[in-house]
């Protein structure tokens, strides 16, 4: 059985809703990223519940899980979130 992936927001990242989007700023690189509102919601969920958040388990459907995974991969690519490697 696959171990659910867990995530943590990079502590150097701050984000803020602007218009209909979310802007995330990485205090390390100095880069600002324009995110969709759903990506911003994921950041907030991870930050609020870093110990438990596991998208595949939390998602209501396979389609939702796939969408969340895709968004998380994009956030990870931007180095806004990091995978927590299970010990």
């Amino acid at each position: 059985m696959a171990v659910p992936q867990r995530w943590i927001v990079d502590p150097r990242v701050v984000w803020c809703r602007v218009g209909g989007s979310v802007l995330a700023y990485h205090g390390g690189s100095g880069d600002t990223h324009l995110l969709t509102a759903s990506a911003g919601e994921l950041l907030a969920r991870i930050d609020a519940d870093a110990d438990r958040f596991a998208p595949v388990v939390d998602a209501a459907s396979a389609a939702e899980a796939a969408a969340m995974t895709e968004t998380l991969d994009a956030l990870a690519e931007a180095e806004l979130v990091h995978r927590v490697v299970p010990s």
Partner: peptide, 13 residues
């Protein structure tokens, strides 16, 4: 840095 980001988003909002 971060302070500028927060102040700028606040100004725009």
């Amino acid at each position: 840095g971060t302070l500028a980001f927060e102040r700028t988003t606040d100004l725009v909002n």
